[in-house]
Structures are given as C-alpha cells and as structure tokens.
Simulated assay, not measured.
Amino acid sequence: MDFLQMFVLALIQGITEFLPVSSSGHLILPAQLLGWSDQGLAFDVAVHIGTLAAVIGYFRNDIFRIAIDWLGSLVGKGSTFNSRLGWYLIFATIPAVAFGFALKAIGLDEVMRTIGVIAGTTLIFGALLGWADLKGRRIQPLEKLTFRQAMIIGFAQAIALIPGTSRSGITMTAGLMLGLTREAAARFSFLLSIPVILGAGSLLTLDLIKDTAPVDWSVLVGGALVAAVSAWICIHYFLAFINRIGLMPFVIYRFCLGAVLLWVMLG
C-alpha cells in the first residue's frame, strides 16, 4: 500500500464511519474504479483504532460522567440520567453483538459484501433516513430517552451489519422515528458506536495476531492518525450543523452513491 492509497482509504473510513452515508459503499469504490487490492486486516485494525480514539476523545467528558454515575449505581448511589444512559448503551449493544456472531457462524458476513447488496441497501436505507427526517417529530431530548427506545435503536444498529446500511444512518433513522431531536439521535448514535467499534476492533486484533503476513508499521500508524483526525473533525462539524442543515443532503448523497454503485455493477 502506497501513501496515496493509505491516505484515501483512511480518510474515507474516518469520515464515513460517523456520517449516515455507508462506509462500505465508499470503501468498495476505490478497489473497483482504481484497481486497488484489499487493504488487509492490519490496516482495518489501524483505522478502527483511529476512529475509536476520535469518538472517545470527542466525548471524553460525557464518557467520564456516564462511567462515574454508572459505577455509582452499582454501589447504591441512586439512578441519574448518566447512569441510565450507561445501562442503555450496554444493553443496546447486545443485538449487534448477537447478530454479528450469528452472521459469522453461518458465513454470511463476507457473502453480503457485494456491490449489488451495498447499492441496494444504500438506496433503501437512504430513503428511510429521508422519510424519518421529514416525518419525525424531532421534539425529544436525549435526557428523556427511555430503555425501550434505546433497545429499538440497538436492534436497528444490528441491521447495519448488512453492508451499505450505515451504522450511524440506521441508528439516527430509528432515533428520529422515535421522536428524538436530530442532535439527540446523533449523539446517542455516536456514543453507541464506542462499544461496537471497540468490539469489532478487538476481534480484528485477535485475527491479526493469528495472521503471519508482514506488517508495514508506517502505513498502519499513518492510517490510524488520518482516520482519527478526519473522524474527530467529522463528528464536530456534524453535531454543529445537523440542526441547521438537516439530513436531506446526506439522503441525496446516498441516492447518488447508490446510482454510481449500480452503474459500476452493471458496467
């Protein structure tokens, strides 16, 4: 992997990990259009570490308060919004974990990584995102989130294991359908990404330990840094402008991306 390939793929991963536009849909295009080979397991681990560092760094104060109050709830210090949010994040992660292991056990996790599947899910779930943004009441703050709502969003996140769905896109769609404000849906989506990215990165790391392929550390470190910086910038500006611009620009973008993927598939 040369510098250009490393930079482009890490940048794509960092930006699309948290935007509702499907990272798998973007990562498949360079290989198809430019003839690039698969980036490899080690690089996947590196960019996952980068995006994880970005989201933890950005929400470090929130994470600290959630962790303190959650630990306090374990020793009888009472329930607070942050302690409940900690429990919500834990339980809402379970559906994605269970679904992920099920897909891997029956061998469907790789089978679904085709341009046809990614194009279809990019278009279908893009339309759902647009419908939710237009029809959602968008009145409920994150502080009013209930356990039932958190679990519905958690089950929606499990669907994102189908390539092209977009983890952030489907969780924001579910949040908006439940009446959350755009900012509340986005913040819960980003916080919910932390255990999922941590789990996925851990599994990839275990696979990497078993792998005997040589490792280019300069590429891995560079990829992790590019992914971390681009992801942090993405989170910051997305939260800053989401209430102003809404989600329709991303819906239109998904339609365009889906059309390009169909063109590549049929061409």
Results as ranks from 00 to 15, higher is better:
P163E: 13
M177L: 15
A160I: 06
A92I: 10
R148K: 14
R137A: 14
L161Y: 05
V117A: 07
L108V: 12
F91N: 11
I124D: 05
G136L: 03
I106Q: 03
E110L: 13
G175F: 08
L89R: 08
L123Q: 00
T122L: 09
M172Y: 08
L134R: 15
T122D: 01
G100C: 07
A127Q: 02
I124F: 15
V111H: 12
R148I: 14
T121W: 13
Q140Y: 09
L142Y: 08
I152T: 14
I159D: 08
I170Q: 07
L134E: 11
G78Y: 00
K104Y: 11
G126I: 03
A156C: 10
Q157L: 10
L176I: 06
S168P: 13
A132G: 01
R167K: 07
A98P: 04
F125Q: 01
L108S: 07
T114W: 10
I124Q: 06
R138F: 08
I159H: 07
A102L: 13
F147Y: 12
L145C: 06
G175C: 11
P141S: 11
G164Q: 13
T171Y: 04
G100H: 12
A102V: 14
Q140M: 15
R138K: 15
A156G: 06
A156Y: 06
F125S: 04
L178A: 05
L178G: 01
E143D: 14
R137L: 02
L145H: 04
R138G: 01
V97R: 03
T121E: 13
W131Y: 15
T121Q: 09
T93I: 02
A92V: 05
S166M: 06
R148L: 14
R138A: 15
G175D: 03
I115Y: 02
G107W: 11
A174T: 12
Y88T: 04
L161E: 06
I106W: 07
K144M: 13
T165G: 06
M172E: 14
G107E: 05
L85R: 02
W87P: 00
F99M: 15
M177D: 01
A127C: 01
T173Q: 03
I118E: 05
E110G: 14
A98C: 11
I94M: 02
P141F: 06
R148A: 15
R148P: 04
R167T: 09
Q149K: 07
A150L: 11
S168W: 03
A96F: 04
E110V: 12
S166R: 03
K135N: 11
L123A: 10
I106R: 02
M172H: 06
T121R: 02
F101V: 09
I153D: 05
G154K: 00
L142D: 02
F81M: 09
T122S: 07
F147Q: 00
Y88K: 05
T171K: 14
W87C: 00
G179M: 09
L89N: 12
Q149W: 05
P163A: 14
T122C: 11
S166T: 01
L176P: 01
I118T: 13
G86P: 08
R167Q: 10
R84G: 03
I162T: 12
K135I: 12
T93F: 15
T173I: 03
I153M: 11
